[in-house]
Design a binder for these strands. Structure first.
Lengths: 180, 180
DNA sequence: ATCCCCGTGCCTGTTTTTTGGGCACGGGGA
DNA sequence: TCCCCGTGCCCAAAAAACAGGCACGGGGAT
């Protein structure tokens, strides 16, 4: 029911990922860090890429469950910023690795879920066609996603909140125009 | 090699102990908190008192290993204060329970170890008889121990650092007199 | 080019740990 | 008085972790 070893593996991996690039982390490193047998790793995970896949997906899930009721574009941004900043070194190392696609996929899905939840509630009962709503969701999802990517490409040197503030402003003005 | 369940039990117990009195914590509460089977608890620990015994002893060990080289009465006091304050609610609940004796025994031993290590190094090569040194250690050990007890009896309302500052002053003046 | 080291992924079998179910006991509340 | 609940313990089954070994492939050193 409670798989502490599995959790320990993930924690060790996240810890190591906060220290160095993914390419410099081996299965051996992970199992030695949490003092378990190497076979135990393979009992729980297919291989290292599978661990990456689960880790990234799980972190995104945590983010979503942590903010069940996003009720503004600002809160929406805060949620994403929170996750990215909390493990910014790990995020950086995953992004600049062969697993970039895994990260981008989950980030896109995560942004999509949050934005979609918020916008669907926002437009409930208002005169908008499903197609228009979907397009709106896609637009804002991509804006959200792109802001993170842009920030990562810039070496995370800029204030990510800045990117999001601009995105939020655009979203708000766009929404207000729609609602008129 | 790595027993995560055992650790999880201790963490859950410490967490609960920071929330409510020992008398209101059952084995069931603990296993439910970390989502394991009740039998798994009994696999690792004889019963709840055994868990208390190990927990308290372990915390004291952590404290000692965290401060391997105490080189002044102040540092000695800081070490003890650190442990007590970090889990002050848990300490309070253990102290005000049927396991008070367990806590006092380990606290006394812990104070003894730290004080002894420090004083033996301090008086190395100086003219003092082993009997006098032992008496000195016992005196300071008890002063250290008693300060914590006194603070706990006062409902932890006062600043524990105050108690220790006074103890430290006495220790220092006593030591200086001896060294002259 | 060859050898060698190292990490990988997987296999076998064994041991340890966790689980689910059930039992008798005792204390406390209805 | 009965009943509920937590306890401590038992058993057998399932899950998990272990030790040890093997073939493969990449990369560095000679």
């Amino acid at each position: 029911m409670a798989n502490f070893t599995r959790r320990a593996i993930k924690e060790a991996f996240l810890k190591l990922l906060n220290q160095r690039p993914l390419s410099q982390i081996t299965v051996k490193d992970i199992v030695e860090d949490c003092g378990i047998n190497r076979n135990s790793f393979y009992y729980h995970f297919e291989d290292l890429p599978a661990l990456v896949e689960e880790m990234v997906g799980e972190q995104m899930q945590n983010l979503i469950q942590k903010h069940p009721t996003v009720s503004s574009v600002e809160e929406c941004a805060d949620a994403v910023i929170e996750l990215v900043m909390e493990n910014r070194r790990a995020v950086y190392h995953i992004y600049n690795s062969l697993s970039r696609d895994v990260f981008e996929r989950h980030l896109m899905d995560g942004c999509g879920y949050i934005v979609s939840t918020y916008l669907k509630a926002e437009f409930a009962g208002k005169p908008i066609t499903p197609a228009d709503l979907d397009a709106l969701i896609r637009l804002h999802k991509c804006a959200c996603f792109g802001s993170v990517i842009d920030w990562l490409n810039g070496g995370m040197k800029d204030d990510i909140a800045d990117y999001f503030r601009r995105v939020c402003a655009l979203q708000k003005s766009g929404l207000e125009r729609l609602e008129r």
